[in-house]
Nucleic acid binder design. Structure first.
Lengths: 226, 226
DNA sequence: AATTGCATAACTGTATACAATTGCTTTTAG
DNA sequence: CTAAAAGCAATTGTATACAGTTATGCAATT
């Protein structure tokens, strides 16, 4: 998610960071593709300095890999990575959900209810993209409520990496959309009832279900492109 | 040709990263202290370029904070941060422990047994520093066995941040050392018995117990220095 | 004395220049 | 003809120069 441009001035380095990241997520820069600082610099018509700093951030985030000789390439994708990402996310999303359930105000509950309704509506209209987007907003709002900056920062970075895989999943898996909507409904109920154990458990299961839905199509993609 | 040396070779940027990080952990650079690129550069007798890149890595790791005006300061410490760190660590350490329990070879088990014995011996000799160090090696070895690169990378970064707080804890809390040794013994048993549920649970509890042991002394320190 | 405005200093952001390393091609010894 | 090596090209690492921004101190004004 891109911070609003109006609220804070962004340096060239920051803009480049978001730009390259987006290219990696969208597959414009493909897994394992080698990265050249100078060609990126001339392409964006700036010097190498901000490019280097943006790339280093992406390297820290593991969207870019540094080879032993110092050169860079776009990080590969793999079934193992997806599983790792979802296993870690499952725990951390569960944690923030638990904390949010305990700390949410009545106003927060109202907001969560609205997001849930948007998800349900989108799924009934077979708008999978909307289900995913409102789902993200729902999750992000939970991060906010939890006020857990450490978990939130990690989750945001992991979610960027997950985005690469979402692109590979089928664009109209309505069955999964409906299931996801159902899961969010149950999740919201648990949160609204202040049942943090149940909420944490449901969130973990929700993440794992997303993984299972995604895995087969990803495996297929990886097999076709090796 | 000397391939072993060339692969080990670290750039100035990397060395500076470790050096500044160490200074922050040891408290030579104090929480909230403002950081000046140029003075660091002249102090280490290098240019600003590698300093900037090292600082950016530390910023990503949240050991350094960037103010809205672009200037940097050493990240503050707080009770809230400790709690967040331990809550996240608890879950991730539990995850890698579970995975390690499933995947460990007989040789791995032997190695873990040795580390456990070293911890027990150190605690009986009232060598708290050794208890902490062997404890770290035990944990790091679990990371290795788990082969979970995502969790390992996150844990290593979190552990750097935790190190700052360890420095504030009393240097000779032998009661806690003995308790930690006992916990590691039980943990090893669960791992050796391939009881991954129990191992995960014990590891989570172990981390939470460390937090509770550390929290009071940290609270005291924060109170005395505000 | 407090406040505003301006000048200047201090600092970060970006560009460019240069050094060091790596990869590649060609040459040359066997 | 093969393989090591020399030389060149491409690329990253570091230093320096310059531009832009923010903070600071001082003077003027009320």
């Amino acid at each position: 998610m891109r911070p609003s441009l109006s609220s804070q001035r962004l340096s060239t380095k920051d803009l480049v960071y978001f730009e390259i990241k987006q290219k990696i997520i969208e597959g414009l820069l493909k897994p394992n593709q080698s990265i050249n600082e100078e060609s990126l610099a001339s392409e964006l018509d700036i010097s190498r300095t901000p490019i280097r700093e943006a790339l280093q951030r992406l390297e820290m985030q593991e969207l870019v890999i540094r080879l032993p000789n110092g050169r860079l390439k776009v990080a590969p994708i793999s079934i193992q990575e997806v599983e790792e990402l979802f296993n870690v996310r499952s725990l951390l999303e569960g944690l923030v959900t638990r904390e949010a359930t305990i700390q949410a105000t009545d106003k927060d509950m109202e907001k969560l209810k609205q997001y849930t309704q948007l998800i349900v509506d989108a799924s009934e209209a077979d708008q999978r993209v909307d289900v995913v987007n409102f789902g993200s907003e729902f999750h992000n709002y939970l991060y906010q409520i939890s006020r857990n900056q450490t978990a939130t920062k990690i989750l945001n970075q992991l979610n960027d990496r997950v985005s690469r895989y979402r692109r590979l999943a089928p664009t109209k898996d309505n069955k999964r959309s409906q299931q996801a909507a159902e899961e969010h409904k149950k999740l919201f109920e648990a949160i609204a009832n202040r049942n943090h154990d149940q909420a944490e458990k449901l969130m973990r299961e929700h993440i794992h279900n997303s993984l299972n839905a995604a895995k087969s199509s990803i495996a297929l993609h990886l097999h076709n492109n090796e």
